[in-house]
Amino acid sequence: MISVNRLCKTYKVRQQTSSKNILKSLFQSEYRYVKAVQDISFEIEQGEMAGLIGLNGAGKTTTLKMMAGLIHPSEGTVTVNGFIPHELKKEFLKKIGLVMGNKSQLWWDISAYDSFELEGQIYGLTLKQIKEKIVDLADLLDVKELLGIPVRKLSLGERMKMELILVLLHEPSVLFLDEPTIGLDIISQKKLRDFVKRYNYEKKSTTIITSHNMKDVEELCKRIIVIDHGTVIYDGLIEDLKKYSKESDFEEIVAKLLQGTQGQ
């Protein structure tokens, strides 16, 4: 179970200096404070799949990073299966998996298989277990033939599938997916979604997805959390949102919801 309580994150960002003040900036830097996440609270049950959506810079990825333990919250608390994520305890790290669509975790110049082997060893799997899991997952994702090819020679869709295999080798019970279908064609998107759905169903994993692709969220999640300017503007079932909206298209509904807050 994931519990997020009054979570805030403020970044201290160094200001770009104008040419006028360039000398002054050598001795004194100017900073501004950016509130990326402001007072967010929600809970996600074990086995639930929820979508975090919002515009660029809304605070989705920052929230996800705090849940994964990558960054420390400025205020508020997060607990994931009873652990405080940013403490990065071994037991916690063994239970989570994070896929970032725009950040590869694979070793670029060598085959995905070599990356999987190291990953498996890091999580304490035996060589036999690693091999079996790789074969199973590669079979499901239809990339068995590509395991020996250097990652840099794979297409984006093939690489994303490999990223998923890497993260799922240790069977995490909590899965964070940050824009997993970014840049993929519709067939690859569909395959990836089907796979994630199946994994969630079989392993009863708690899964949080951030995506700009509403199809991902609509197909995979029952519940969405819409974030705008660092705050939650909707937290509930997709079905309910659809019920009370004049629009029938989910993307339109979300766009209206976000436009509403933009106008305020």
Partner: peptide, 19 residues
């Protein structure tokens, strides 16, 4: 030790590209 072995194997594969 097992991690060290896997790291060695991985780096060896990488080395063959840049040898």
């Amino acid at each position: 030790m097992r991690i060290q072995k896997a790291a060695f194997k991985l780096k060896l594969s990488e080395f063959t590209i840049y040898r």
